[in-house]
Design a protein around this nucleic acid. Structure first.
Lengths: 128, 128
DNA sequence: TCGTAAACGTGAATGATTCTTATTTACGAC
DNA sequence: GTCGTAAATAAGAATCATTCACGTTTACGA
């Protein structure tokens, strides 16, 4: 938002939160995290804006873990690890999917591929 | 089931269907596909058995597409393409995630990785 | 000050999935 | 064969994440 404007206050807070955290939160988590600072925030607003950000490509969905969709405000491609015990998602910045695989996938699928997700699943140290 | 036994009739039909198709169906799709042959099949049975198969490692979940979970009866690791238009999931048998990446991920995540999913997203020829 | 459109809060609606409960089924012991 | 038991099931209610509908608030420009 423009400085001094109160327009889009909540929308911006939601996006800022998603961009700041590395927790890959759910909508509920975003809501719970912002509620103390923004007492009149509603869950509907969180869902509405998250869905807007997704459309605009400002955030990405990481899919659902235990039936709850998770989001990432860091849109440059990276690899994830999901703990099947506690549901924690963490970034694996040390690994990369070679860009050229997208082209290979396009060819094999006979489709227009625009991105891919590489996700490892297992149990973190705390969960086993 | 043992030959000659009628025990586990529906359970086996569900597993057989999942192993036979390459459609990566949802629970609803499994139900609709088997209903004609098994008129007294119920959706609850499909969900119950799918959840059992998942636990036992007989099938894998591919995550949700448009809010609906999808399953694969082919449990050896392979790559998928998901069309964001029509929701079709197809196999990319020509591509592989090198086994040794699991070890690298274990190391970086400090966790016990047991499998990974590589999924490309885009639009199939019919959808654009 | 007024009009307008975007953003929002609230609560109802939706829909996939899970749970509950009573029923059916197969099989072993007698 | 009959009875007891445990697994599998059908049916429908319940749950819960997400979306929708609608009336209200807010900011800004005319």
């Amino acid at each position: 938002m423009e400085p001094g404007s109160k327009h889009f206050r909540k929308r911006d807070a939601i996006l800022a939160y998603l961009r700041t955290t590395d927790q890959h939160p759910s909508a509920e988590t975003v809501y719970a995290s912002l509620k103390p600072q923004i007492p009149d925030l509603s869950l509907g607003t969180v869902y509405r804006n998250i869905s807007l950000f997704k459309q605009q490509g400002l955030i990405v969905s990481l899919g659902s873990v235990n039936g709850v969709e998770r989001y990432d405000g860091n849109i440059d491609p990276h690899v994830h690890f999901v703990c099947t015990g506690c549901g924690t998602i963490s970034d694996l910045h040390g690994m990369h999917v070679p860009e050229e695989l997208n082209a290979a996938a396009s060819r094999e699928a006979d489709a227009m591929v625009d991105h891919c997700h590489l996700t490892f699943h297992g149990r973190c140290r705390e969960c086993c």
